[in-house]
Write a protein that binds this DNA or RNA. Structure first.
Lengths: 114, 114
DNA sequence: CGCCATAGCTAGGATTACTACCTATCCTCT
DNA sequence: AGAGGATAGGTAGTAATCCTAGCTATGGCG
């Protein structure tokens, strides 16, 4: 049944953008930063990360540039101005969302059944 | 573009289960409880709520029983034992998830770019 | 009477994250 | 020397989820 496969549930984009706040990174490094920064919780397959980065690129939130390091080709991404704005908004949105969900999950925010 | 349409991002099931902790409710009342309990943030279309309830029913997490009140047919749902267990687990899962995401969104959890 | 709230439902589309697979280089261990 | 792992990039196809848009029907209010 694979119930909890979808671990990120729509919040991947914010996290990817957030990894780039400290400076440009290439795709694989982004994947590692996410894994290490979450104590292994968000250890995403490349089949999740790369398409997501392409999506953000197409959306104009990040820009990628190719280079070759140690014989391996790399695509280094950095935030655009739009990406930075988006991140700020999503960050705020996340806090509101999290607050709302947490409140609803408390033992008894629910009025008695009518 | 309809960017932020998917408001719930995979956490609908927990919330639906949570609305039933206070006792059985019929579908429409569940929808209302979610809307009112979130200050209108989670005002979901019925096309989201009903299929989700059917899903939870098929999964054995809730059970529904028909009745007629004031000439209107109602389907009243209540948590099963499995549903209660699931809710407890998801509740814990949410807190871990939220903590991880929040931590990653802080200004600088990211080590300097290599 | 018309309209809204209540109460239930479905079909189809868009998006998302996943599995599973592929190429290629460099490094380490046997 | 060869095998395998880590690094680095990618795609195709699938499952799941939430949405839009539409439908039926009753009761009550202006």
């Amino acid at each position: 049944m694979k119930a909890d496969a979808q671990a990120l549930k729509g919040h991947l984009d914010v996290l990817l953008l957030a990894t780039l706040t400290a400076g440009p990174r290439h795709g694989y490094a982004i994947k590692e930063a996410l894994r290490d920064g979450s104590n292994g919780r968000f250890d995403l397959p490349t089949g999740t990360v790369y398409p997501a980065l392409h999506r953000l690129d197409r959306a104009g939130l990040i820009t990628g540039s190719w280079s070759v390091v140690d014989g391996r080709r790399r695509r280094t991404y950095q935030l655009t101005a739009a990406g930075r704005r988006k991140l700020a908004g999503e960050r705020a949105g996340w806090h509101e969302f999290a607050r709302a969900v947490t409140a609803l999950l408390e033992p008894d925010p629910w009025p008695t059944t009518r």
